[in-house]
Write a protein that binds this DNA or RNA. Sequence first.
DNA 1: CGTATTTGACCGGCGC
DNA 2: GCGCCGGTCAAATACG
Length: 290
Amino acid sequence: MSLNSEANLSSMEPTCVDTSLNLNVIPSSHIDVAGEFLVEELRRLNSENKRLSETLKHVCESYVALQKHVSEFNLLKNADFEKEEKPSPKRKVENGVNAYAECNTEEETFKRPKQSTTPKVSKVFVRTDASDTSLYVRDGYQWRKYGQKVTRDNPSPRAYFKCSYAPGCPVKKKVQRSVEDPTVLVTTYEGEHNHGEHEMEISGKSESPGGGGGGGTGSVGCSRSASSGRIEALELVHSRVVDMNAQKSWIHQFLVQQMATSLTRDPNFTAALASAISGRILDDTSMSKR
DNA sequence: CGTATTTGACCGGCGC
DNA sequence: GCGCCGGTCAAATACG
């Protein structure tokens, strides 16, 4: 879940994976003539490993710095949209727009210039399971779906919900999958609930498709009421942190796999390892005999 | 049978 | 004025 991943952030924060291997496993004593070659080979691999570790460390640092810059840039962009109060209802410029950047904008706020009181709009990004194709986001409120539409800029359908907990609650939400990452559900909330947050249901029964049956979607729920843009920005950053952590974890696994694969595929290494182990066993047996 | 979801039709805003 | 598009309505359908 997203909250846990935030807690793991501190442990993940050391930007780079420690890929260095302690290859000095053979004591310098008890080396015969054949072993010298192995030691030489191990030294060579060790130095190469150190060099690669340095390179990887540098790449990781650059990556994290770049991510930081992107986050700061998007936060600034968000702040700029809040400052702009002129209602300029303009249709979106489609195609080639970064999904995240597009979701930062608050254009929906300005699409209804007739309304004297513009409803508060907020967006929440929810990462779901790749196999989960539903558009149901469990956020603690009870929603009634009243429409679904395929929009021009996104092949995945957009679902429209109304808050059904209180009869007069004006809050609506739209749920649509991100263009770039279909596992991310972009939820847009409009308006404010006229009932308290204590009414948020606990059983997790709401928002299940098919006539209020059980279930749920298995998606990550970010419960919140529609509120300030600052919280939106935090949500946005939070979702990105989750993404970054996932990426780091993936990189970690990938590197470990790559190392294991490359080492096991190297006939020199496997031969050296086998002889080193057998040599060590022979040493131990000869030592115990004395 | 009651309630929620689905989905095609309709409406209104906007650009050309 | 016309067509496109997003948003909403409501009849049909599904489900418990």
